[in-house]
């Protein structure tokens, strides 16, 4: 078609263009709605199962959970709908409170890191930890998910509140690898300094926001238990 084409293309009428675009648009919309309807239930199931698996992983003692949120007055109430960063109270087989699971996020080395961690009311410590989302450098930053000595921090990471219960007694902070001296310090990872520092900051931020409220209202909270499995 390099030579001046002698083809006198017939001008397409506006009507046929409208017809084709509107027709295809309607067909596509119908298809998307159908697929969405057909898969919506399974997707919701999958998402719930993914989250509950993660919750069970960080707080193995819990048999059931109740998502909680804050009302306008700052009191703890049952969440009406799933939050972006959900917080759960976990209950054991007899319905006793075994701990709380908190979602928190913050900036890592590459992008936002989103984590899930468990707080034990009895031990006043962080007892479980899982990374939900991270884009940290493979082989360096993502060591926070697998490095045994880093995960050992979460056997019991001290998160006591101060005497009036308004804030953490000691700031949760990451220290250089092998230099952990206090139970509220995180033993960092050489070569993943920024990521392990970020995990410390995220834990501190999430705990400062939630632990005072949970300690105040958590034990009194009456869950409408939703038993899973």
């Amino acid at each position: 078609m390099n030579a001046p084409a002698p083809i006198e293309q017939k001008r397409t009428s506006a009507w046929s263009m409208y017809r084709s675009i509107v027709g295809i648009g309607a067909f596509c919309a119908l298809l998307i709605v159908t697929v969405f309807e057909a898969t919506a239930e399974r997707i919701a199931d999958n998402k719930a199962r993914f989250l509950s698996n993660a919750v069970a992983e960080v707080l193995p003692a819990s048999r059931s959970t109740a998502e909680v949120t804050l009302d306008a007055d700052g009191a703890l109430v049952a969440a009406a709908e799933p939050a972006d960063l959900p917080v759960f109270l976990g209950y054991g087989a007899e319905g006793e409170l075994v701990g709380a699971v908190i979602t928190a996020q913050g900036m890592g080395y590459a992008d936002n890191i989103r984590i899930l961690y468990a707080y034990s009311f009895e031990r006043q410590a962080i007892v479980g930890f899982k990374v939900l989302e991270s884009k940290e450098t493979p082989g360096l930053g993502d060591k926070v998910e697998i490095e045994p000595h880093f995960l050992a921090n979460f056997e019991a990471l001290d998160a006591r509140l101060n005497e009036d219960g308004t804030a953490l007694a000691n700031a949760i902070v990451t220290v250089k690898e092998g230099e952990k001296t206090e139970p509220w310090q995180l033993d960092g990872i050489t070569g993943a300094t920024i990521t392990s520092d970020a995990i410390g900051a995220i834990l501190h931020q999430g705990s400062s926001a939630w632990l005072p409220v949970l300690e105040r209202d958590g034990r009194l909270f009456q869950p409408a238990l939703s038993v899973e499995e």
Binding site: T12, S20, I21, I24, C28, L31, I32, V35, F36
Partner: peptide
Amino acid sequence: FIPREARIVSYICIIATFVTCVDYA
């Protein structure tokens, strides 16, 4: 059925639809 002038927009619309379906699947 698709006129020449509106072909790209039609194709992209069709492709985007199926991608959305795959995403849900």
